[in-house]
């Protein structure tokens, strides 16, 4: 039979070495390889102000199937006390086949799926207009998100930043609209030095 000497399988006897490792001061701890750090290329995500040409469309990543457990968690943590989201008997009595997912969770999920494409390099999320819920969304349904750039301008007060607005839509697995809204964010310029050229 093989005697495996993999690190985590070694007996953890309180040897001198082990005791020493517990008392080792912070500056004596093993450091991450400087060679690896020097060679590591950041896998950057997201877009910058310059990328948001008016009318550009984004099909956002992943999609998301929402479960009733998550709906109940969201609804209770946000103190949302409309029992149709947390009591299936009430939901059925009101004509639903199941508890609808809290619309604010649908909104948050569509928003969340859009962040890498739209506002990963943003700061302040300024506001939302014209949020509407087209139809109920039920546990087990899957939401997909897409957006269009509808506004862009350089910030007059914050150098190196612009304000970008998007029209975002959420669809279910049948391609039917479930939620849409318009939002705007402050977004960083990739090259703040070129701000004067970055016109609309």
């Amino acid at each position: 039979m093989h005697h495996v000497h993999v690190g985590f399988l070694r007996p953890l006897a309180p040897t001198d070495d082990f005791a020493h490792s517990l008392s080792t001061s912070h500056d004596k701890q093993r450091k991450m390889s400087q060679d690896i750090i020097a060679r590591a290329k950041p896998r950057e995500k997201g877009h910058w102000y310059e990328d948001f040409k008016l009318g550009r469309e984004f099909v956002h990543h992943w999609g998301r199937t929402i479960s009733q457990a998550e709906n109940a968690l969201f609804t209770t943590l946000t103190l949302h006390f409309n029992p149709q989201y947390t009591n299936v008997e009430v939901a059925r009595a009101m004509g639903h086949p199941d508890t609808p997912v809290n619309p604010l969770m649908v909104f948050n999920t569509v928003f969340g799926l859009s962040v890498q494409d739209l506002s990963e390099h943003g700061t302040a999320f300024l506001g939302v207009n014209e949020l509407s819920f087209a139809q109920p969304f039920y546990p087990g349904d899957t939401v997909f998100a897409r957006s269009t750039v509808i506004e862009r301008r350089l910030s007059s007060s914050k150098q190196g930043m612009g304000i970008v607005g998007w029209h975002t839509k959420g669809f279910n697995q049948r391609g039917e609209l479930v939620c849409e809204f318009k939002r705007s964010n402050l977004v960083f310029l990739r090259d703040p030095g070129a701000a004067k050229e970055a016109t609309r």
């Binding site: 948050n108 962040v115 506002s119 943003g122």
Partner: peptide, 10 residues
């Protein structure tokens, strides 16, 4: 938790 649940990557 909710930020991560709804997959907000920021």
């Amino acid at each position: 938790m909710i930020t991560n649940l709804v997959m907000n990557t920021a």
